Simulated assay, not measured.
Amino acid sequence: MILGHIGARKGSKGVPGKNFKDLCGKPMIDWSLDQLLEHPEVDAVVVSTDDEAIYEHAVAKGALPIGLRPAELATDSAPKWGVWQHAMATAESTAGQAATAFLDLDCTSPLRHSSDISGAIDLFLKEAPDMVMSVCEARKNPYFNLVEPDETGALHVSKPLPGGVWARQAAPTVYEHAASTYVVAPEYLRRAKTIYEGRVIPFEMPPERCIDVDSPFDFKLVEMLLREELGQDG
């Protein structure tokens, strides 16, 4: 069973109520939830939330009825890993079968395509890592144009190499962790305590599909790009 998962906590300081906020005609969560429910490789879907309205909405659309997220997993500081572990265990119990892959979509990254989900699943099945994590090429590179001050306040390249790097193209490849799409081996999720304990490999996505809504500006940008993609007027 490939288990699709979305985490949607009620609280949000940057954009209040963002997970259920209308985005181009439907709640933001539905841009990800509909992708899971409609994807041919996803066998079951679960939404982990402490918001009763989001929970009832998700179950009505076809998500497994696992109940609300425990309070200790609904705080600002609750780690994603613990939320995943609880969601998978509860979903497996509800569905009556074990997961063969845990597929998480971040509902604050609504610009991914269904083909991105397929690509991440294909990479997971082909390479058999502990985890596939979506990334995009970093706009700034610590070997070239990210700098930090020393104890005197003077700036230096964050990760200097012998001889220096004087062209972006010559710098080692660096990725941004894109909060969009993850595929995790269930046994790894059960035993590990954090994301990077095992073999985590990158699934590269275009930067324009990896924008994560964390501020009102992000929401406006995503809305503009989504309207453009949908061919809607402003």
Score class of each variant (00 low, 15 high):
I6L: 14
R9V: 11
G14A: 06
P16D: 05
G17H: 07
K21A: 10
D22A: 07
C24V: 12
P27S: 10
I29R: 11
D30I: 06
W31P: 08
L33Y: 09
L36E: 04
L37M: 07
L37G: 03
L37I: 04
E38K: 14
E41M: 11
V42C: 08
D43G: 13
A44E: 12
S48N: 10
D51V: 05
E52W: 07
I54M: 12
Y55G: 02
E56M: 10
K61F: 03
G62N: 07
G62R: 08
P65T: 01
A71N: 00
D76E: 08
A78H: 00
K80E: 01
H86I: 07
A87F: 05
A89Y: 07
A89L: 12
A91H: 05
S93E: 15
G96N: 09
G96Q: 09
A99N: 01
C107V: 13
T108P: 02
T108S: 14
P110Y: 02
L111K: 02
L111D: 00
R112K: 13
I117S: 06
S118W: 00
I121S: 04
L125N: 13
M133E: 14
S134I: 00
P142V: 07
P142Q: 08
P142T: 06
N145S: 06
N145K: 06
E148N: 09
D150P: 08
K159H: 14
P160H: 09
L161P: 09
L161N: 09
L161S: 12
P162D: 10
P162R: 09
G164M: 09
V165L: 08
R168K: 15
R168S: 13
A171D: 11
P172F: 11
E176Y: 13
T181L: 15
A185S: 13
R191T: 15
T194R: 13
R199S: 09
C210H: 03
D212A: 08
V213T: 10
D214G: 14
K220S: 11
G231M: 02
